[in-house]
């Protein structure tokens, strides 16, 4: 996540870690990973009863998930929404990140605040606005409305990741391209984009995951026809607390783990 120029030789005599600190940190780490570690063994249980530690071993709950038409449909819906939202948020977020890092125009400070607004406003307020707006436009409950809502929600995250990537790139390379006669547009597409490809990929993966797991906007915008996986899970937890949830949770944890490791590796590579 972060690196410093003085990263290597920090562990000097001053910085010896005391035992109480180790204990506190260890307990908090245990607390942080506990939910992920609990759902995994439970997902292989051979009974529908929810208990820990689970009894027996079987793939029953996974079979139940893949054979449940509602679970499969909501997973497909979430995949479609997350893919669309990621494409849109990258299309909007990558260029604006470039403008924010490279243009010294006075108005850019305002643009920065403007594109960061979606993380400053509580999601519930934004979700209510979208709900009324899309109802007026007559597209409420559609997949398109979910894609639009999630795309805006994700723009600030894309911008932050891409800005960090752009800061690692030497601007003189772009100057060289322009001196050699490339237009600003051509420079962006043939010089800048290839140089920040791994940041864009990381931003895309994060955006996909944020949208795939997003609940509040989806809760307001989805209809029975466009129910996303988190919404299906939400109602399942609220009404029945079905054991299938542990299988789904394990799969989602795996997805998070993969995206988080790949994303971090991509950004490390660039740094």
């Amino acid at each position: 996540m972060s690196t410093t120029p003085t990263g290597t030789r920090r562990a000097t005599i001053i910085d010896r870690i005391s035992l109480p600190l180790k204990i506190v940190a260890g307990l908090v780490f245990a607390f942080l990973v506990a939910p992920s570690l609990v759902v995994i063994p439970m997902s292989f249980s051979d009974s529908r009863e929810i208990m820990f530690p689970p009894r027996g071993f079987s793939w029953m709950l996974y079979r139940e998930y893949f054979a449940g038409p509602e679970w499969v449909a909501s997973t497909i819906e979430s995949t479609v929404v997350a893919t669309g939202a990621t494409a849109l948020s990258l299309a909007a977020g990558v260029p604006v990140a470039y403008a924010l890092v490279r243009s010294r125009l006075f108005g850019m400070a305002i643009v920065r605040v403007f594109v960061m607004m979606p993380i400053l406003v509580p999601t519930i307020v934004f979700a209510l606005g979208l709900y009324i707006y899309f109802a007026r436009l007559g597209i409420s409950g559609s997949t398109l409305s979910l894609i639009l809502g999630h795309a805006v929600h994700n723009v600030p995250f894309v911008v932050l990741v891409v800005i960090a990537g752009l800061r690692q790139v030497n601007p003189n390379i772009e100057v060289a391209a322009q001196v050699l006669g490339a237009s600003v547009l051509r420079t962006f597409f043939s010089v800048v984009l290839p140089m920040i490809a791994s940041s864009i990929l990381a931003a895309g993966l994060f955006s996909f995951l944020i949208s795939f797991d997003e609940v509040v906007i989806a809760w307001f915008l989805s209809s029975p026809r466009t129910m996303t996986l988190p919404i299906k899970m939400y109602s399942s937890i609220q009404w029945e607390v079905s054991a299938v949830l542990s299988a789904i949770s394990t799969l989602l944890t795996l997805l998070s783990l993969v995206i988080c490791v790949v994303g971090v590796a991509l950004r490390e590579k660039e740094a």
């Binding site: 506990a34 939910p35 929810i50 797991d213 988190p230």
Partner: peptide, 19 residues
């Protein structure tokens, strides 16, 4: 720190109900 950060709030809620 990153794994819980990227874990779905629903996975966590379900897990805490169990825990």
């Amino acid at each position: 720190v990153l794994l819980p950060f990227w874990t779905s709030i629903l996975v966590k809620s379900f897990a805490f109900i169990v825990i």
